[in-house]
């Protein structure tokens, strides 16, 4: 298992380098000018010098190499310094300054380090999107189990209909729909997610919960739709297996047959699918974040694309790529842990 994990990690290095290059070249080829938003009154030679200052004058391989160096060497150093200087866990260690004098990946838009932006935006995304993922999974699994156990029943048919709806209605529609119903018509819930809101007591906690309900609902609908179908299919696969008949022939109750024998086998593929969905949480829900004005990672990506902020877009996209590759590996390893028949060596 360990050998397998190391082997996969090593193999992922060239994959990720290639992905980084592809992203870089795509952005390089994309039309657009980082100076587009600079007022027209600024003279051309000033703009040229500004471009120069951003490092745009140098050939692309140099700039790509620089980005790689900054991402893989400078940023980890900054992280180490942060750990020893101000983190709760390792703050007691002697302060280090590995990153002193190094140039970090700088956003063209904010002129600040890209990583600082990411650190600012990540909590909102994790709260809203992560919570909706958890809610979605928790709703989806029981629905999937029951739909499979009572295949073609009224419950199953309703479940099929709801997940069809969940699949086919895009979040920019369902998002607006729930805003119209619950905030505009009924006035129960706020339509905008207030990021500056701080939870201090019970009342403010209630406000926080209220403002999370709508975006979580919209996002969870999608997760639920997908996962409950997947869970149902996996349960159906296993319900027909011979070992289920054996369990019944041993006199086990239906509860044990379904929730012990069938469920464990059915969860194997489902768990891996859940793991594969996690990078998408970090990626944020670009559209839903826009609709509810959640200033998370997804929204950051959109605005920076519009602003031609190439270093930020490059870095964010690459982080998503790393997460996807990592969670693919984790999903495979989980499979090996859950299924005793699979051995990686």
């Amino acid at each position: 298992m360990l050998t397998y994990a190391i082997r996969r990690l090593l193999l992922s290095i060239p994959t990720l380098l290639f992905i980084a290059l592809v992203i870089f070249l795509l952005l390089e080829l994309a039309p657009g000018d980082p100076m587009a938003q600079v007022p027209l009154t600024v003279p051309d030679e000033v703009k040229a010098r500004m471009r120069e200052a951003l490092g745009l004058g140098r050939p692309w391989p140099v700039r790509f190499g620089l980005w790689l160096y900054q991402f893989f060497w400078v940023e980890p150093m900054v992280f180490l310094d942060w750990l020893t200087n101000s983190s709760f866990l390792f703050g007691w260690l002697p302060d280090t300054s590995f990153s002193a004098g190094m140039d970090r990946v700088i956003s063209w838009q904010t002129r600040g380090p890209v990583m600082d932006l990411v650190v600012q935006r990540l909590p909102q995304t994790l709260w809203v999107v992560g919570m909706s993922y958890v809610v979605g999974v928790l709703i989806a699994l029981p629905i999937g189990i029951l739909s499979a156990y009572r295949q073609y029943s009224v419950f199953d048919n309703v479940g099929t209909f709801v997940s069809m709806v969940g699949y086919s209605i895009p979040p920019f529609f369902s998002g607006v729909l729930v805003i119209v119903i619950f905030s505009v018509q009924l006035g129960w819930l706020p339509s905008i997610y207030d990021t500056t809101h701080v939870v201090t007591d019970w009342a403010s906690f209630k406000v926080q919960v209220q403002q999370m309900i709508l975006p979580v609902m919209v996002l969870a609908l999608q997760t639920t739709a997908q996962l409950s179908r997947f869970m149902r299919a996996s349960m159906l696969d296993n319900l027909g297996q011979d070992y289920v008949r054996t369990a019944r022939a041993k006199g086990m109750t239906e509860w044990v047959v379904v929730l012990t024998h069938v469920l464990r086998n059915s969860m194997i593929p489902v768990v891996t699918v859940i793991a594969l969905g996690i990078p998408a949480i970090f990626g944020g829900a670009i559209i839903t974040e826009q609709v509810f004005k959640v200033n998370g990672i997804g929204q950051l990506l959109i605005t920076q694309i519009q602003a031609n902020d190439l270093p930020t877009v490059q870095t964010l996209t690459f982080i998503f790529a790393v997460l996807i590759v990592m969670f693919n590996l984790i999903a495979d390893l989980l499979y090996g842990i859950l299924d005793p028949r699979i051995r990686y060596d």
Binding site: D242, Y243, R245, T246, A249, K250, G251, R264, D339
Partner: peptide, 19 residues
């Protein structure tokens, strides 16, 4: 089932729960 009457099935590969 499993008390007074025991069962043995055809395919021992699939009749036991693999997990």
């Amino acid at each position: 089932r499993g008390g007074k009457v025991g069962f043995v099935f055809q395919d021992p590969m699939t009749s036991l729960n693999p997990t």
